[in-house]
Design a protein around this nucleic acid. Structure first.
Length: 235
DNA sequence: GTCCAGGGCCTAC
DNA sequence: GTAGGCCATGGA
């Protein structure tokens, strides 16, 4: 069968629509420049863990406190007791759980790669991603954050925003799984790290700017004329 | 006061 | 294999 791109059914139609969505978001918001190297790979890894179910402003507070306490390094994570670390990262929420996760990450880099984070991150993502997933506290989204923004390898990041936006656009995959969403993007898009980084950041921008969970502002949404559910919220 | 934020682990069924 | 509880702060 030959999918009709105009109907948005079939993988080819979805691929074309996903490319169209990126073009529209880029035109509306411009490049977002998330984690463009200002934060080193280590800080990206820490940020990826701290941001789990937390607002980024809270993560920034925690990172600043870690920097001030001189524990924002692999060595710093090692020598700081988990209880002390938890107090430092308090503002990011779930601080006891996240302190354990940070310690687990540091321990893994130490034991698995002799403390050489760069060596770990230069592994091809086919090996790196499963390796990260095996670390306590690193699930699929966090692993992809690290692969994409710290290792600079093309693994698409799916978050709650991505799912919400695709659902409203009528582009959600039939099976509601992380991997289904990830495959949707990776099958549709060329394998391009910068593109994946920008696309994900643009989706987050859209979610905050127009496609909020409650009371979305569809009037100002750059996707309003290609979004089938926009009308429900137009008033 | 309520809701939400750049999730993941653990346990029970 | 999956649904539900749990972890917790700060801003809107």
């Amino acid at each position: 069968m030959v999918p009709n791109p105009l109907q948005g059914n079939g993988s080819e139609g979805k691929a074309a629509r996903l490319l169209d969505v990126h073009q529209r978001l880029l035109a509306a918001y411009g490049p977002q420049g998330w984690w463009p190297g200002g934060a080193g790979p280590f800080e990206v890894c820490v940020g990826a863990i701290l941001t789990q179910s937390a607002a980024w402003t809270n993560v920034e507070m925690a990172l600043a406190r870690m920097r001030a306490a001189e524990v924002l390094s692999l060595d710093g994570l090692h020598r700081t007791p988990v209880e002390a670390l938890a107090q430092i990262i308090r503002p990011s929420g779930y601080f006891n759980a996240k302190a354990r996760k940070l310690k687990a990450f540091a321990t893994h880099v130490h034991h698995g790669h002799g403390g050489d984070l760069a060596a770990m991150l230069t592994r091809p993502m086919e090996g790196l991603r499963p390796e990260l997933l095996a670390v306590h506290g690193i699930g699929e989204e966090t692993a992809d954050d690290i692969v994409l923004y710290a290792a600079h390898q093309p693994s698409f990041v799916v978050d709650a925003f991505t799912r919400r936006i695709l659902t409203r656009l009528g582009l959600a995959p039939p099976v509601d799984r992380y991997e289904s969403y990830r495959a949707l993007f990776m099958d549709a898009l060329p394998e391009d790290t910068a593109l994946y980084q920008e696309y994900h950041a643009l989706l987050v921008r859209l979610a905050k700017e127009a496609c909020a969970k409650r009371a979305p502002r569809c009037g100002g949404c750059p996707l309003r004329d290609i979004c089938p559910t926009g009308r429900e919220w137009a008033a």
